Simulated scan of single mutants.
Amino acid sequence: MASLYVLLALSQAEAETTQGSTAILITVDQSGKGDYEKIQDAIDAVPSNNVDLVFIRVKPGVYKEKITVPADKPFITISGTRAVDTIITWNDSGDIFESATFSVLASDFIGRYLTIQNTYGSGGKAVALRASGDRAAFYVCRILSYQDTLLDDTGRHYYNNCYIEGATDFICGNGASFFEKCHLHSITNGGGAITAQRRMSPSEDTGFFFFGCKITGVKTAVLGRPWGVYSRVIFAFTYMPNIILPQGWNDWGNSADQLSSVYYGQYKCSGPGAVTSKRVDWSRVLTSEEAAPFITKDSIDGKAWIRAAPTSFKKKAFPPKN
Rank of each mutant, 00 (worst) to 15 (best):
V62M: 02
L150V: 14
D153F: 14
F102Y: 04
T81Y: 09
K66F: 04
D35L: 04
K33T: 02
S93E: 11
V84E: 05
V127Y: 12
T149H: 09
S145H: 07
R130G: 10
G124D: 07
D152R: 11
G32F: 01
T81G: 02
R135F: 14
S31Y: 01
T86K: 03
I43Y: 04
K64G: 10
N50R: 05
I88V: 06
S107V: 03
I88K: 05
D148E: 15
V54G: 06
S122V: 09
V104Q: 12
E37N: 07
G111D: 12
D44P: 02
T27L: 00
A126W: 02
G32K: 06
A45F: 06
I88D: 00
G94S: 08
S99Q: 02
V140L: 13
I87F: 02
P70Q: 10
S93N: 12
D29L: 01
K38P: 00
P70E: 06
S79V: 13
Q40D: 08
L105Q: 13
N49V: 00
D52S: 03
L114F: 02
G121P: 00
T89W: 06
K59E: 04
V69Q: 01
D35E: 11
R82D: 10
W90G: 07
G133C: 12
T89F: 06
K125N: 13
F55P: 08
S122F: 01
A42L: 12
L53C: 04
A126M: 10
I96W: 08
F138H: 15
A100D: 09
I88R: 06
F102R: 05
K66N: 05
N49K: 03
F109G: 09
I143H: 13
T81A: 05
A100F: 03
V28S: 04
Q40L: 06
V140K: 14
T77P: 10
T27K: 00
R130F: 12
D95E: 14
Q30A: 01
G124P: 00
A71K: 11
S48Q: 11
F102P: 03
I88E: 00
T68Q: 08
S103K: 08
Y36V: 00
L129V: 12
A42T: 03
I56T: 06
A45R: 12
A45K: 07
D148Y: 15
W90I: 00
Y146S: 14
W90A: 14
L151Y: 15
S132P: 07
G123M: 05
Y120S: 04
L151D: 14
G32T: 06
D85M: 04
V28C: 03
V69R: 01
